[in-house]
Design a protein around this nucleic acid. Sequence first.
RNA 1: GGAGGGGUGGCAGAGUGGUCGAAUGCACUGGUCUUGAAAACCAGCGUGUCGAGAGGCACCCAGGGUUCGAAUCCCUGCCCCUCCGCCA
Length: 424
Amino acid sequence: MLDPKAIRTDPAAIALALRKKGFVLDIAPIEALESQRKMLQVKAESFQAERNTRSKSIGQAKAAGEDIAPLLAEVNQLKIELEDAEARRSEIQAQLDKILWGIPNLPDEEVPAGDTEDDNVEVCRWGEPRDFDFEIKDHVDLGAGSGLLDFEVATKITGSRFAVMHGQLALMHRALIQFMLNTHTQQHGYEEVYVPFMVNADSLRGTGQLPKFEEDLFKLDGEQPFYLIPTAEVPVTNLLRDEIVASDTLPLKLVCHSPCFRSEAGSYGRDTRGMIRQHQFEKVELVQFVRPEQSEAVLEELREHAGTILQKLNLPYRTVILCGGDLGFSAARTYDMEVWLPSQNKYREISSCSNFRDFQARRMKARWRNPDTNKPELLHTINGSGLAVGRTLIAVMENYQQADGSIVVPDVLRPLMGGLESVA
RNA sequence: GGAGGGGUGGCAGAGUGGUCGAAUGCACUGGUCUUGAAAACCAGCGUGUCGAGAGGCACCCAGGGUUCGAAUCCCUGCCCCUCCGCCA
């Protein structure tokens, strides 16, 4: 959520900044509702003040044994007026909230203009795509050849956009998770957390998936209105919802492995082949809570942490900064890390690292006590995948494939796979 | 699943429907004392919002309701605890 005060003071500037994200902010209704809200609030509060003092004097009169009937008659009219003003105020406030909770975060100055992913700007590149001297296969054919990756049986037991992995491939998938967690906890200073994979609506509102993107989520149909998490970002970031943390707990760096569940509504026909776009996938997520002045530097640091994984796996990748139109609802700035996929002859997203500034923190009231002012202030939140495990597995399969269809196990994974050198 | 008991400030823990935003203790911050520290003593110490300020308003799990007035009464939900049953 944006600072309502900022919207009040300079709505035109906010609207201009949001245009870069392709969001048209209609200022007039906000200003109209805001002025009504203010008027009604002042009115309602003065009625409340009046009621409070009168009620007190009734109490005193009663204690003194006086007749309170005339006082009661007086205050009755007041009560009716108060109820009316209060009802109108809360109606206006609800309308205002509906608008405010649906306004996306402001993009940073440095975010390039543009509408689609084609307008994203490459900022760096690492590694050289390998030259193959044989006809390459994609991960689907590689998996079918070895019998270790099966989409048909997943369709039978559940439906489309699911996969079943067997044997050594399932082992490699698990090793990747282990490798990522170990690296981030042992080398990058993150604390590992395990969290619920179902969350309530408040949590999803906090990080920004709700109220606008409910169709992207899987909602449970049981008695409890829970949702499956689309990313560990949701439960992990909400750890600090409604909390005020001491300054010496910052920066708080958390890493979490979780499954992620996405409905992929609206992406029919996209990436239908293979394991690129699934309803369920594993991800290792990095989340940091920091002092506001540190968030820019920490975003750079965090994307290096994600990059380290790709480098240790020796997978070629590039980093792009998302243009305004491609930027997510809650993000002020996002870098996508894209890994080289030989079968597609292009780079594909494998991590997304974003600075949300105080946008999520304001929605979830995540604060820290600033020792300089001794007042609670909003935190900044930063997160990124480190990495998407399913896509990392695809990248390893395709980049490490051999002419015979086997897959060489990357050096860093071997100790985690009982010394296995090749998956066939 | 059955039967009970609870949810109050960072923690512990009071609170006959009427100066209760809330006693008290601990913790914390500042000060006095001390060579220094501890102890003792004094003072301060929730969040949000409106206001230049004085101060107003709201918040005692959440949402409704009763009342002139609700932390206190009623309803619903959520959560926690104890016992029985069941269970990875």
